[in-house]
């Protein structure tokens, strides 16, 4: 229980399933994840890896039916989220845990002024007068780099980047302990993305909020995160502090992800990508979920999920190559040419 006092968030063996016409979708399958106070964690994976489902499970927002949390536990500040009443959950959502959604174009209410949308959040969670809430809302606009005078304006009067600033202002309005940002810059152009990442970096220092940044983009995660977890087919395959993971990715899937990105420092004609596709979530393979696509797969890989091994202090890998055979013998860092510069 010591761990839970240190960690703001502790997820153990989480399983989330959706019942669909084509079968039982195992979106999250035995996920373990913890987050320290003030830590910014990048949760990286491809479409369908279960990143957003994990976020919704933390927020207790899995729509049921068709979804349900089939097992495991989520402890937030030492308290069991799954045991909370609806009333308590409502108090936590937006107040203690806030979320930034991917698409700023659709996550704002088009018929409310932006200051009203920020004030709404403050009134819901804090005992303030309407006037105080509005003042605080305008302060928040300033904090995210918008002119407070623009408070009475409506979402359509703002550009995409500015709308995402408003969304961030709403999320941070009640000083949450945990912020979940789901692909916060994916819908934005690269120069606007740079502005938003810069803002998030400043706010991170200002509020010191523990953050989970969900992204498919290893570049974006490198800008902001202290630690990184790589997700695939509902599981975490590798987790480490950002420096160790970027310099020395150990799991074959993580290595494949890096190899798929055209390297700006090298000139190659073909990319060394991973063959095939992620598994069908209604029919996950037995054993390691990545084994069918893995160049290093052996018979052992289809027998039971590989457990997380601490490859070096703080760097965890779920790969059977790590078990007993003097793990990491393949020298992936050299393969990627990370050593130069």
């Amino acid at each position: 229980m010591d761990q839970q006092r240190e960690h703001i968030l502790d997820i153990r063996d989480l399983r989330v399933q959706y019942h669909t016409d084509t079968g039982l979708v195992k979106a999250v399958e035995g996920l373990n994840l913890s987050l320290a106070r003030g830590e910014t964690l990048g949760l990286v994976g491809e479409t369908g890896a279960g990143k957003t489902t994990t976020a919704l499970a933390i927020m207790q927002l899995i729509a049921s039916p068709p979804g349900r949390i089939a097992g495991g536990s989520i402890f937030f500040e030492g308290e069991d989220m799954l045991a909370k009443s609806e009333e308590e959950k409502r108090h936590i959502r937006g107040g203690k845990i806030a979320m930034i959604f991917q698409d700023p174009m659709t996550s704002l209410n088009p018929v409310l002024s932006v200051q009203e949308q920020i004030a709404e959040m403050i009134r819901l969670h804090q005992k303030v007068t309407d006037k105080e809430a509005l003042e605080k809302a305008r302060d928040m606009l300033g904090l995210v780099g918008l002119r407070p005078e623009r408070g009475p304006d409506y979402p359509h009067q703002f550009s995409g980047g500015m709308k995402q600033r408003v969304v961030i202002a709403i999320a941070l309005a009640c000083s949450p302990r945990l912020l979940i940002a789901d692909e916060p810059t994916t819908a934005l152009d690269v120069t606007i993305q740079a502005q938003i990442l810069e803002l998030m970096q400043q706010l991170k220092q200002h509020f010191n909020t523990a953050t989970i940044l969900i992204s498919h983009d290893l570049g974006v995660v490198a800008q902001l995160c202290d630690s990184v977890a790589i997700m695939y087919a509902g599981r975490i395959l590798e987790k480490a502090d950002a420096k160790s993971l970027y310099a020395n990715p150990q799991h074959p899937y993580t290595q494949g992800l890096f190899n798929s990105i055209p390297d700006m420092t090298k000139n190659v004609t073909r990319l060394n990508t991973i063959a095939g596709l992620p598994p069908d979530p209604t029919e996950l393979p037995p054993g390691c979920c990545f084994a069918p696509r893995c160049a290093h797969a052996s018979g052992a890989c289809s027998e039971g999920s590989p457990r997380m091994v601490e490859y070096k202090p703080g760097h965890f890998v779920a790969c059977s190559r790590m078990n007993g055979n003097g793990g990491g013998a393949l020298g992936p860092a050299e393969e990627r040419g990370q050593a130069h510069g």
């Binding site: 120069t191 993305q193 974006v220 490198a222």
Partner: peptide, 19 residues
Amino acid sequence: LSAIPVPRVDIARKGRIIL
């Protein structure tokens, strides 16, 4: 070019020109 998020932590966080 400077706004491209480079997937490396050693060079990712310096020298960006923010328009």
